[in-house]
């Protein structure tokens, strides 16, 4: 069992840089943590989840679909030269990725997504390296390799062949680590948030949440779209063409169900024409519709929408309010 220091991890990352397009946790100019190359900022393994939508690595805000030259020839986008290596997903992020892999391959396969995703390697970072010294849940799978922090060093756990190949390349000054006690700590992490959204989901499905509640929440939504743009399992996009000097470029960019234009019909009629219905849809989608469709919730409690929402109506906050007000125990 390899147990690496941060310096050893950095050395390992440098050693694989020629083979991979690295997306590792770094600090940007003002200290904001992000995913990027080693040349974009100092490595920042401690601190937990990266604020940006982690799945943007494979599904960026905008991307080119194809270009059509003036002679009519269509050129599809080509995959990058090197496979992507992501370090720094949390266990929750790995859950989200597993879901959108399924989403983007179901019925019709999204080639643009899989151009980046195929061949990529995912390394989760977990253990005693959360924000303010907090403990991050251990994934125990759903990724190629996991770096579990014991407070000082990171123990490497490979789960796939790709992960094992990379583990071999890691040079560790220590080969032992107490993984069992860390796993025990992970198992003992509180699951209050999970219980809350599960309960909120049940209440929504049982139609216990009245329309008036959504009006109240919708009144606080300014349609900034940050909840969607931060959410790792939001996958909606808009497609548009631009013509540059005779060459048509088709691109796609993130869309948001919190916008009026998202569902507006050509007539101008909008079946989701008010904020309360749009807010209800946002929560309902992850906690009710997807439960029916996929058999599970599609919020994995990463907390990004709660962090990104300027008026505190992220999914955890809203779920808490639903449970407080409408669960039987609390019903007046």
């Amino acid at each position: 069992m390899k147990s690496l220091t941060i310096t050893e991890i950095e050395q390992f990352l440098k050693s694989v840089e020629p083979e991979f397009d690295l997306r590792v946790p770094i600090r940007l100019h003002d200290g904001t943590r992000s995913l990027g190359g080693l040349n974009e900022g100092p490595l920042s393994l401690m601190g937990g989840k990266i604020p940006l939508k982690p799945t943007s690595v494979f599904f960026p805000q905008t991307e080119r679909v194809f270009t059509r030259e003036s002679d009519g020839e269509i050129k599809m986008e080509k995959p990058g030269e090197k496979p992507i290596l992501v370090v720094g997903y949390t266990a929750e992020d790995a859950d989200c990725l597993e879901f959108i892999d399924k989403f983007f391959s179901e019925n019709f396969r999204d080639d643009l997504y899989f151009q980046k995703r195929d061949g990529s390697v995912i390394m989760v970072v977990s253990g005693k390296c959360g924000p303010d010294g907090g403990f991050l849940k251990i994934a125990g799978g759903k990724c190629d390799l996991e770096l579990i922090c014991d407070g000082e060093r990171f123990i490497a756990q490979a789960y796939t062949e790709k992960g094992r190949q990379l583990e071999k390349k890691m040079k560790a000054s220590k080969e032992v680590g107490d993984i069992d006690s860390l796993k025990k700590m992970s198992d003992e992490l509180p699951d209050d948030d999970l219980k809350t959204i599960q309960k909120a989901s049940e209440l929504i499905l049982a139609e216990k949440v009245p329309d008036a509640f959504w009006v109240e929440i919708g009144d606080r939504c300014i349609a900034c779209t940050s909840c969607n743009y931060a959410c790792p399992t939001c996958t909606c996009f808009e497609v548009y063409d631009r013509v540059h000097d005779g060459t048509t470029v088709r691109e796609r960019m993130w869309d948001s169900c919190q916008l009026d234009g998202f569902m507006r019909e050509a007539s101008g009629h909008n079946p989701m024409g008010t904020e309360d219905i749009r807010t209800r849809r946002r929560i309902h989608h992850k906690l009710a519709a997807d439960v029916t469709r996929w058999g599970h919730l599609t919020c994995y409690l990463c907390g990004r929408c709660d962090d990104a929402c300027p008026t505190n109506i992220g999914i955890k906050s809203v779920s808490r309010m639903i449970v407080e007000r409408y669960s039987q125990a609390n019903e007046k």
């Binding site: 904001t32 960026p60 805000q61």
Partner: peptide
């Protein structure tokens, strides 16, 4: 430019 990324510290 392909997108924007919020800063956490402003």
């Amino acid at each position: 430019i392909t997108g924007i990324e919020p800063t956490a510290n402003h």
